[in-house]
């Protein structure tokens, strides 16, 4: 289970707290269950037995005990809670900055100091603290990668903070967890956690200009309404849909709804809402097969 396989410092601490709570909860549940079963077995009425057992109305000492014992236990738990809270929610110094912006229904990830903007796939360096700021351009979303431990909402008009220190490389799944409308299901997050050098190389590549300048598909991209919503650096600038400057390097389309293959991209451009009903991208049914192929070749080539 993802919750018990943490990959960040924050998730390790939360999992430790959670494990301790689960043990205490299990003990309490066992107590209640065995008390109940034992009572039923021992004190079940025999048929025909109409004798009356002692009519005990209470026992102040016992009642005091089961008021104080849980209170003390909870008091101790609360102290651990506050300590954990302060630790996992602390803002580190020297952190890599990431700005997370929620959109209906995709994620925008900006690395302001690296000049990188991407969507739905978040690359993070292992062994470097990450400072994320979250906000939204429309409704409330929430950023959750189970193995990162933390979850935080992206609220329009607010800027929230979240800190993560990734300790292990790998590909991790995440998703929006605040109901945000029709396609809340397909607002998934793909995390690529990689060693620092690999991350830096990726960032340099992503910060670079779009490839394939002057390709036939680029012409089509500019002529059609694509440019009204999408950025391809050097070609267009718009922020309604995801930045496509390096679309070819991403693994999924539509925030996880399908894999990024040429065939899928063709279907997506033709009629995105047949794949992701309600998506804000209009259908481009008027493109000829040849035009569509050229456009797909161009976009898929944007590595």
């Amino acid at each position: 289970m993802e919750s018990f396989d943490p990959v960040t410092r924050q998730a390790v601490e939360i999992t430790n707290l959670f494990n301790a709570e689960l043990v205490v909860s299990a003990l309490l549940l066992a107590l209640v269950l065995s008390w109940l079963v034992l009572a039923v077995v021992r004190f079940r009425a025999r048929p025909g037995d109409n004798t009356e057992h002692p009519q005990v109305h209470g026992n102040p000492r016992l009642e005091l005990a089961w008021t104080i014992a849980p209170a003390v236990t909870l008091g101790i738990v609360f102290i651990v809670v506050v300590v954990t809270m302060r630790s996992v929610d602390a803002i580190p110094s020297g952190a890599q900055q990431v700005r997370v912006v929620g959109h209906q229904w995709w994620w925008e990830f900006q690395y302001p100091d690296l000049g990188v903007v991407t969507a739905n796939e978040l690359h993070v360096p292992v062994g470097t603290p990450l400072q994320m700021t979250l906000d939204s351009v429309d409704v409330i979303h929430s950023f959750w990668v189970p193995r990162f431990g933390m979850m935080r909402d992206a609220v329009p008009g607010r800027t929230n903070q979240m800190s993560i220190f990734v300790q292990r490389a790998g590909i991790f799944d995440g998703s929006c967890t605040q109901y945000c409308g029709r396609q809340h299901a397909w607002m998934r997050i793909r995390i690529v956690a990689e060693p620092r050098e690999q991350f830096d190389a990726w960032a340099v590549q992503q910060a670079g200009p779009a490839t394939l300048a002057g390709a036939p598909g680029q012409e089509l991209f500019v002529q059609n309404t694509c440019v009204n919503c999408h950025t391809i650096r050097g070609v267009s600038a718009a922020n309604v849909g995801p930045d496509l400057t390096h679309l070819g390097s991403r693994v999924t389309l539509g925030a996880g709804v399908i894999d990024n293959t040429p065939d899928n991209l063709r279907r997506w451009i033709r009629d995105a809402s047949s794949i992701k009903p309600g998506v804000l991208m209009p259908a481009f049914g008027d493109l000829s097969e040849a035009e569509l192929n050229a456009l797909v070749d161009y976009l898929d080539g944007l590595l």
Partner: peptide, 11 residues
């Protein structure tokens, strides 16, 4: 317990 909620909320 707040940090556990930060982890499991809306799941």
């Amino acid at each position: 317990t707040v940090p556990v909620d930060w982890h499991t909320h809306d799941s």
